[in-house]
C-alpha cells in the first residue's frame, strides 16, 4: 500500500510530462547559474510569463475547440497602442488618473470585438480558423501601423507604468492578475456548461451538434475570450514599459501556441486543460529567463526552444502509447 501514492504520482507525471520537465530545468538552472535561484528572479519569471500566459488561457479554450487564433500578436499591439494613446486624448485631459480607465476599456473592447469578428467569419463562412486568423493577423497588424502612423506612443501619465511595476503584498500585481485569471478560466473550463461544451465541440463536432449545442455561437464566444485576453496582455505589456510600439507582440502567437501545446493540449482539439497550459507557459518562462541569465545568445535560445518543443511532444507520445502492440500507422 505504501507505494500507492507514489505510483499514482508517477502516473500523473507520465500523463503530464510538462511538470517533470519544469522540475528538471528548475534544478538545472539553479545549479548552473548563481542568480537564478532568488525570490526576485522568481517574481521576474512570473511577470515575464504573465503576458504570454494570459493569451495562452484564451488560446487553450480555442484550441480545445479544435480552432486556432493566429491574430493574437497583432491584437496585443493594437490594444497596447490604443491604451497608451487614448489616455492622452485631450477630452480626458481633466480626468487625471481616471483617463486610464476609458483607455483600458477601449483596448479590451477592441480585442474582444476583433475576436468576435474572427469567430463570426469562422462560423458564417465555415472557412478554417487557421486561414481566417492568418488573414486577421496580417490585417490587424496593418491596422496598427495605420493607426499609429508607424510611431511609438509613450504614456505621459506615470500612474500607468507604476501599475505595471507595482506589488500586491509580496507579489507583483501583474503576476497576481495572471494567477487570478488562470483560476477563473480553469473553473470556466472544468466546471461550467460552457467548458463542457468546449470539450464536446472539439472532441466530436457532429455529436455536439446532435446534442443540440449551437456550435457557431459557442465558438464565437471562445474567440471573443481569446481576443479579450490578448488585449489584456497588450495592456499589461505596455504598462510594464509605459509605452507601445507598432511591432509589439510580433511572434507572440507562436510563443502562445508552443506553450499551450507543451501543456498537453491537442492540436486536433478535444483534449487539454488550464493546469497543463499553466505548466507550459511556466516552462517557456523559466527556459527564457534561465538562458538569458546564462547569456545564451537570443538566436540560440530560439533553436533550443524549438528542439525542446519537438522533444517534449515526442516524449509525450511515447509515454502515452498503448504499449508496443499498438497499431502503427
Amino acid at each position: 500500500m505504501s507505494d500507492n501514492p507514489l505510483k499514482s504520482a508517477m502516473q500523473w507525471l507520465a500523463r503530464n510530462p510538462i511538470w517533470s520537465f519544469i522540475l528538471l530545468i528548475f534544478i538545472f538552472f539553479s545549479i548552473a547559474n548563481p542568480y537564478f535561484f532568488a525570490i526576485q528572479n522568481f517574481k521576474n519569471i512570473l511577470v515575464q510569463t504573465s503576458t504570454i500566459g494570459l493569451i495562452a488561457l484564451g488560446m487553450t479554450l480555442v484550441m480545445i475547440n479544435g480552432n486556432i487564433d493566429l491574430s493574437v500578436g497583432a491584437v496585443v499591439a493594437l490594444a497596447a497602442s490604443l491604451c497608451v494613446d487614448i489616455q492622452d486624448w485631450h477630452i480626458f485631459a481633466g480626468w487625471g488618473d481616471w483617463a486610464i480607465l476609458p483607455a483600458v476599456l477601449a483596448a479590451l473592447a477592441a480585442g474582444t470585438l476583433l475576436g468576435a469578428l474572427n469567430g463570426l467569419i469562422v462560423w458564417k463562412t465555415g472557412v478554417d480558423s487557421f486561414i481566417v486568423t492568418l488573414g486577421a493577423m496580417l490585417g490587424v497588424r496593418g491596422l496598427v501601423f495605420v493607426y499609429t502612423k508607424e510611431q511609438s506612443f509613450f504614456a505621459s501619465n506615470f500612474a500607468f507604468s507604476d501599475f505595471g511595476s507595482s506589488n500586491i503584498g509580496p507579489l507583483p500585481t501583474l503576476a497576481v492578475l495572471f494567477i487570478l485569471c488562470t483560476i477563473v478560466v480553469h473553473f470556466l473550463l472544468s466546471h461550467t456548461v460552457h467548458g463542457r461544451n468546449i470539450y464536446a465541440v472539439g472532441g466530436n463536432r457532429a455529436a455536439a451538434v446532435n446534442a443540440g449545442i449551437r456550435v457557431g455561437p459557442h465558438m464565437l464566444v471562445n474567440f471573443m475570450i481569446v481576443g479579450f485576453f490578448a488585449a489584456l496582455a497588450g495592456i499589461t505589456l505596455s504598462s510594464q514599459m509605459g509605452a507601445a510600439t507598432p511591432n509589439l507582440g510580433t511572434n507572440y502567437e507562436l510563443w502562445v501556441i508552443t506553450s499551450v501545446v507543451l501543456g498537453g493540449t491537442k492540436l486536433n482539439g478535444g483534449a487539454g486543460d488550464i493546469i497543463g497550459t499553466f505548466g507550459g507557459v511556466l516552462a517557456i518562462g523559466i527556459l527564457r529567463n534561465g538562458m538569458n541569465l546564462m547569456q545564451v545568445p537570443a538566436f540560440y535560445v530560439l533553436v533550443i526552444l524549438g528542439a525542446i518543443l519537438i522533444a517534449v511532444l515526442f516524449l509525450d507520445k511515447q509515454l502515452n502509447r498503448k504499449g508496443k502492440e499498438e497499431l502503427r500507422l
Binding site: 463542457r196 470539450y199 464536446a200 472532441g203 466530436n204 457532429a206 455529436a207 455536439a208 446532435n210 446534442a211 443540440g212 449545442i213 478535444g270 483534449a271
Partner: peptide, 18 residues
C-alpha cells in the same frame, strides 16, 4: 462513433451532454 458520441469523453458527460 461519428455523430452520437464524443469518444474521448467519459460515460457520464456523454450521457448528460444535451
Amino acid at each position: 462513433k461519428e455523430q452520437g458520441l464524443v469518444l474521448g469523453m467519459n460515460c457520464r458527460d456523454n450521457m448528460t451532454l444535451p
